[in-house]
Amino acid sequence: MLEVLTQPFMIKALIAVILSGSASALIGVYMVLRGLSSIGAAIAHVALAGAAISLLTGLDPVVGALILSLVFALLSGYGEEKGEVKADMTIGVLFGFSTAVAALAISLSSPYAASAWRFLIGDVLGVTDNELLVLAVMSLAVIGVITLFKMEFKYITFDPEGSSAMGLNVRFYRYLLLVLTAVSMVVNLRVVGSILSVAFIAIPAVVAYQFSHSFEEMGKISFLTILISSILGFLVSVMLNLPTSAVVGVILSVGYLISIKLSVKRRKCKSIIQCFRVVREHHIK
């Protein structure tokens, strides 16, 4: 069984999962803390609609998904900025609309329905060399930009009003974050599919939140969560012959439940070691 894991397609698949997961895990920290993880979910479905329409019209699905998700990301940012309608309402409407458009496009593109289906649940084992290259460039670009502007993203997440007063261009960084989310969702589309993209962007960050007292800690733990879940999910999916993305999603969800149980925040302690001491002392009493 282990021989299978050394096959080139398996190595490519593992790299693809780790790359797309890492970009999502880092983006997720800011999206979750800003209460915008639902925008991530909506963008994932818009990307699916873009890919499905592209298949129907003969365009490259990645290009179609990227264009449509970028347009949506910028529109949702504009809606949030204007504040005339609650962001949640705009997202809800566009979420439903994009999913309906995607379903319609998939049904109309019957010769390509299988390809479209891959964008819904992902197909990590089917990633080609070219796709891996595109995916690597996009993921590394997202990770690079986040690393470059981590300070600015931290400031606008903690205190947008104060950041603006200090002269930071809050508007620019807010839109940049949405653009990065859109790119990350398009990367995820090919690897884990639109459905599990939501898990990739939200769960590692939420798990990390339970153990973090700073953005840096949260970023590291979020990255580690996705790394461990991806490798574990990969091994389990190969052993049990199950879809990799779905297994990674289940492992992430189990990880979330465990994190709630072990949360240093809920136990009001400063580290997991201190938390274990508190629990042990409680049991001794």
Binding site: K154, F158, S212, F215
Partner: peptide, 8 residues
Amino acid sequence: RIDPLIPV
């Protein structure tokens, strides 16, 4: 106006 639960 600042969310006190943000880890910073």
